[in-house]
Simulated assay, not measured.
Amino acid sequence: MEKKYIGLVLLISVFIGCDQEKTAEPQPDLKVKVVQPIQEDIIIEKDFVAQVYGYRDVSVRARNEGFLEAQTFQEGGFVKKGQQLYKIDAEPLREAVIKAENQLERNKVNLQRAISDLNRIEPLAKINAVSQKELDAAKAESKALEALVNSSKANLNISNLRLSYASIQSPVDGVVGKTLVQVGEFIGRATDNKILTTVSVIDSIRVEFFITENDYLAFSKRSQENQSKLLELPLRLVLSDGSVFSELGKIKFINREVDNITGAILVQAIFPNKKHLIKPGQFARARLGVSELSNALLIPKRCVSEVQGNFSVFKINQANRAEKTRINIKEKYKDFYVVSNLKPEDKILYEGLQMVKDSVKVNPELVEFKSQFLTK
């Protein structure tokens, strides 16, 4: 019995020893992906909240009073300059034209009579058959009626012009908006000459935004350093879905003054918009280069950890051990940080931040970071 017990103890000891040997086997190093900082010249950009307008937004108003008889355009459609948009009741205007024509004819008849009288009196005055006073009166009558005829012609022209205004036409080629009046409505009162609709030229668009005085000074310094004009700096437009508009814009003008309340300056830019993708009234972000950095050192944002405002990365040393290293961030650039205390040859942990601890030995695999943006 005692021998059996001793044998059992020895057997258990052998099993325990074997298990300890298995536990003591070295674990393989953790496989991680690392990147190296990128060094290049970059332009630091800044976004500004912007409002989009048509290159020209022309309000359409009635130039005559009257009842609206017809709307002759499709809301939201494209219209040509001179195309009819609305039609006003023209009957009173036609009556005014007829009245002006009749008045002109009467005055022409009276002028012909006066000219005939003058032609008859002039020969008689030469032989003293009539007095000089009668001759002067005939000449005055002829001139007065000639002036009256000219006045009647002007009145007829005005009446015809007013009649033409019964057809309200598009002032420009562009996209017409929603109608603000309805057929049957009386429009064109001097006290209530409201906008009927708006036609926008959108082959190009205007973008307006405000910049601070400090930003303006930074832009000015950059343009002076590059010997370029401030108005020639390229501008991008970021749409509401985060996409970047394909066309580059140019600053058209910078307002002459700084608002003394907000400390901001109005900037207006022009963007090509041949496909009519951008519509007036949209909100967007104007993206403008603030400053240039030469040989900037960039690391992907996903490599960086932040704790209470302190930023750090895991740097892999020559012994393939992860070292937690605090970094100094100078700027944000697209999906990178611009840092100042790393070297281009450093290996920075890219994937596996949650699994790696300080001083842990790793098996690094160098990969290339593919930015979702196009770097310069």
Results as ranks from 00 to 15, higher is better:
281 G>D: 04
209 F>T: 00
246 S>D: 11
226 N>Q: 09
326 R>H: 10
273 N>Q: 11
312 S>D: 09
244 V>H: 06
314 F>A: 02
255 N>D: 15
217 L>A: 11
208 E>D: 11
235 L>S: 06
208 E>R: 10
255 N>T: 09
249 G>V: 05
270 I>H: 02
310 N>E: 15
242 G>E: 10
225 E>T: 08
197 T>W: 04
270 I>V: 08
247 E>C: 03
277 L>M: 13
305 S>C: 00
255 N>I: 00
295 N>S: 11
258 V>G: 12
200 S>P: 04
281 G>V: 08
257 E>D: 15
277 L>H: 10
214 N>G: 09
292 E>C: 02
274 K>P: 15
273 N>I: 13
255 N>L: 07
209 F>L: 05
269 A>T: 12
229 K>N: 15
218 A>F: 08
236 R>C: 07
269 A>I: 02
201 V>K: 07
256 R>K: 11
238 V>R: 14
314 F>D: 02
318 Q>C: 00
275 K>M: 10
225 E>R: 11
307 V>I: 14
226 N>Y: 00
288 L>E: 14
212 T>I: 00
300 P>C: 05
319 A>M: 01
304 V>I: 06
216 Y>V: 01
286 A>V: 06
299 I>L: 02
213 E>M: 07
297 L>D: 04
192 D>C: 05
226 N>V: 00
211 I>A: 03
227 Q>V: 01
300 P>E: 00
292 E>A: 06
243 S>H: 06
222 R>N: 05
291 S>R: 15
191 T>M: 06
311 F>Y: 12
203 D>G: 14
284 A>K: 12
257 E>P: 06
266 L>D: 05
229 K>D: 15
194 K>H: 13
195 I>N: 14
205 I>S: 08
273 N>A: 13
278 I>G: 09
197 T>N: 09
217 L>T: 08
319 A>K: 09
275 K>S: 15
234 P>V: 11
198 T>G: 13
234 P>F: 10
198 T>E: 15
207 V>W: 02
189 R>G: 14
266 L>T: 01
268 Q>R: 14
291 S>H: 06
238 V>L: 10
227 Q>F: 03
215 D>W: 05
300 P>L: 00
231 L>P: 11
298 L>F: 10
190 A>Q: 10
266 L>H: 02
236 R>E: 14
238 V>S: 10
205 I>M: 06
264 A>L: 06
291 S>I: 08
313 V>R: 01
198 T>H: 13
196 L>D: 09
231 L>G: 11
307 V>W: 03
200 S>Y: 02
217 L>E: 12
285 R>I: 06
274 K>R: 09
297 L>M: 14
292 E>D: 14
204 S>Q: 15
213 E>W: 01
228 S>D: 12
266 L>F: 00
309 G>I: 02
210 F>N: 12
279 K>V: 05
318 Q>T: 10
307 V>M: 13
252 K>R: 14
236 R>L: 14
276 H>A: 14
211 I>W: 01
293 L>N: 10
282 Q>R: 01
307 V>G: 00
251 I>V: 13
323 E>N: 12
223 S>L: 04
246 S>R: 13
233 L>R: 06
254 I>A: 07
256 R>I: 12
310 N>G: 07
265 I>G: 04
258 V>S: 13
323 E>L: 13
200 S>W: 03
313 V>P: 03
227 Q>M: 01
305 S>L: 11
194 K>G: 15
226 N>S: 14
